[in-house]
Design a protein around this nucleic acid. Structure first.
Lengths: 229, 229
DNA sequence: CTCTCACTCTAAGAATCCTTAGATTGAGCG
DNA sequence: CGCTCAATCTAAGGATTCTTAGAGTGAGAG
């Protein structure tokens, strides 16, 4: 080829170097947690730090790693810097990781297995089924994520009651109609906790098997903004 | 729940810990190279070490990491230990990583970009198109991967001439019919090199845009064993 | 049984990554 | 401008990870 002397070996190594940078970005539990949070919608560093139980400095550093791997992008908004998922392929990546890890989870983490298997007896409902039953008015859809995430995007018609307020506001929910709670994803604990709480309050409650990011990725309708009242 | 005291926080952290183990497994260029090699078919540690330019000890250590993350599985075969991809989801994972990295590649690696963009002027052909034209006898399909990989699985009807023998055996290939070379994947340099070589020998040659793993993953037919003669 | 071969394990030094505190930057506000 | 606040940068330590050499293991051959 042209003047540049580049052996195939060097090119190959450079390629894997780039691929590994993406791999490295996903090599830390907190960075995966940050990605999960960002899949709910864009957030400032401060919010992300709080949500992932990280110091400001540490959160910023982790986000830099994600940014350099091009998994996330930034945008200034006044004093704040908003981080967001850079590309739709990132959803696929995070999902691929969790899919591969599923085999591991069933054998390694007794804690984890016990936790989720207990909830699987709660017969989770899938997205298409929920869509039909919600349209028919047969179920109440409950978003138990923090309000900021609800505002950044939610299932149309869903009621927002963040998990930490659920105990106090449980009277707002009907006793007859079945309640379907959802949160961040198939491994998010918020909805599982919510179902527990609701059942103790004698509500008919189930968990949506998927979370909001998967709902959106499936091309299903999404509403934004906070709820009135 | 039952007697075990496990906070949701602990469960969440344990989960991300498991996910990160998968991420960590993909956080090293050589491990990604090993995965790519294993996507061609199962191999012994010795073969893998040679193919990835690693010492035996180092290759074994890297493979342990992959095995502990359940990306690969092992099987004894006499004195040797054969490694193979553990699950179909691993193909999806590797692919997700390379897809995300593509954005990076076009801006970071001038070397890499120059290398592949030069070849993209060679109008790569896609899998379905190749299948039709090969069935019609319009093209010769050329597998330029090492013989072991060809034996472990190849496109039916493909001729095997490993790249390092191509210069010597170029006379075996027709001058009239178009030749389509393929190798390990969209970023594999073997086929690109082969097309270069063939064109200098005045053959009509193109590169298959995808590699063997993607062909197999698409459910297209696969043949195994070495070729006669 | 002993020997060999393919592989794994162990230990140690080198390199990389992570966290933290404190300094710095950059935008908005009075 | 000078102040404040969100975020980033820098430097230092502590913790992982990587590589290498050398010892150990297990299967097959003689």
């Amino acid at each position: 080829m042209s003047g540049v002397v580049t052996s195939p070996r060097e090119v190959k190594d450079a390629l894997y170097e780039q691929f590994a940078r993406v791999g490295k970005a996903t090599a830390h539990p907190k960075r995966l947690e940050l990605l999960d949070l960002l899949l709910q919608g864009e957030r400032s560093v401060e919010e992300l730090a709080a949500a992932a139980h990280l110091s400001m400095t540490s959160a910023s550093a982790q986000l830099q790693v994600l940014r350099q791997a091009r998994l996330v992008a930034t945008q200034r908004a006044g004093k704040r810097v908003l981080y967001r998922i850079a590309d739709d392929t990132v959803y696929t990546l995070v999902r691929a990781i969790t899919e591969v890890a599923r085999a591991r989870l069933s054998e390694v983490g007794q804690t984890v297995r016990a936790y989720f298997h207990a909830r699987d007896s709660l017969e989770p409902i899938d997205a298409e089924q929920l869509r039909r039953r919600a349209a028919a008015g047969e179920v109440v859809v409950l978003d138990v994520r923090p309000s900021a995430e609800y505002a950044a995007g939610h299932i149309p018609g869903a009621v927002s009651i963040p998990l930490d307020q659920l105990a106090d506001r449980i009277a707002d929910l009907p006793t007859g109609t079945e309640i379907v709670a959802y949160c961040r994803g198939p491994y998010c604990v918020l909805a599982a906790e919510a179902v527990d709480l609701l059942r103790h309050a004698r509500r008919r409650a189930r968990r949506l098997q998927v979370g909001f990011p998967q709902w959106r990725h499936a091309g299903l309708p999404v509403a934004t903004g906070s709820q009135i009242g």
